[in-house]
Write a protein that binds this DNA or RNA. Sequence first.
DNA 1: CGTTTTACCAACCCATCGGTCGGTTATTCA
DNA 2: TGAATAACCGACCGATGGGTTGGTAAAACG
Lengths: 208, 208
Amino acid sequence: MDTPRRRGRPGHDLDAVLAAAVRLFNTRGYDATSMFDVAEALGITKSTLYHHVSGKEQLLSMAVDRAVDGLFEAAAHVQDLQGPATVRLQKLVESSVLVLAERLEFVTLLLRVRGNTQVEQHALARRREFDTLATELVKQAQAEGGIRADVDPATAARLLFGMVNSLVEWYRPERGHPEALAATVVRLAFDGLRTIAVTGDQATQEEH
Amino acid sequence: MDTPRRRGRPGHDLDAVLAAAVRLFNTRGYDATSMFDVAEALGITKSTLYHHVSGKEQLLSMAVDRAVDGLFEAAAHVQDLQGPATVRLQKLVESSVLVLAERLEFVTLLLRVRGNTQVEQHALARRREFDTLATELVKQAQAEGGIRADVDPATAARLLFGMVNSLVEWYRPERGHPEALAATVVRLAFDGLRTIAVTGDQATQEEH
DNA sequence: CGTTTTACCAACCCATCGGTCGGTTATTCA
DNA sequence: TGAATAACCGACCGATGGGTTGGTAAAACG
């Protein structure tokens, strides 16, 4: 992680450009954000921006790739685990929350993609892939008897990750540890909101 | 509900125009949908479309109003109820799912608004209002001891309704009763995914 | 020093978009 | 039949957007 001491006139690097673009895409929406807006946010002109990136779609493509890659890394890591499917499902939820917190801006953008271009359609396809993976895990956990079987597995998976994904709407990294949030999400999803007959094994916990 | 037998040349009414517009807004995104696209979907020209509506923003405004109105009607109905806050919270979730299913396209659009214009900012403000209302209900339910108190009420409310709102991403009215779905959501949110020591009081249930 | 490399910019191009204007066609009512 | 009413259309306009062109300024390397 040393400074590679690049040649030529110093300026913005691709990561900074991408970060600025994604921030704008998320606040105003992808279509509502012009390349002029992105350039302005970086303090450069539009033509200079095109010196760094090939076009608007490349920015979107890079952003959703970072989100998707993070999610699939987490999924692969979980699939390497052994043990009951219920625990693996729990781990998948937990690590999804962590990836979401860590790559918040990228995942936010990913979750808003509509499928208008090939880039967007590819992103949607990968999301569906992740969905299938989660649904399979739910099915296994049900077969094991670890989680309730009176709910359609696809429905359960969608609701579960719908809850996880909704984080992008309000989570802000500056306040609160992602780990505590992940634990809360898992607790809520698996044990429910309702008060359980006092078992005393779970201490009172506060976050945010 | 009788036909009012309107004068002049017959054609599309406002509801049909709105429905077509909202469908396109949801599939392609609001900004990515042109007024030409809307007109084309209705089989009329752009100038004729402007005979029906004052502008693109009016379409958005009408759509989000229908969504917000439905949600607040449900909330008002729930607030008129007496009984424990936990039950009222349950009812709010349930009726939210039903409104969401019934006005799917409008609610979908509402949930995607980013706050770019005054219309959108107004919609966001109403959404926050609903959020506050839900958070208060969670707080009350916690004070009553009906739901777990080891989670921040705002976080719980957001996760809960994040799960509810995620329905717009996959629910399609053609298949499955909304009532069964609402029951599933309530069950999952309040009792959790995890298998409870067999109590036998809940029959196996399937939906979709 | 001059060459290479990289960042940068002003001006321009053209397609698209939201919206307007002036007129036409179909229907109801008297 | 003819006025009133409402739906409809072709042609146009100004603004904005993504992207291009043809250069200039600043740093590193030899």
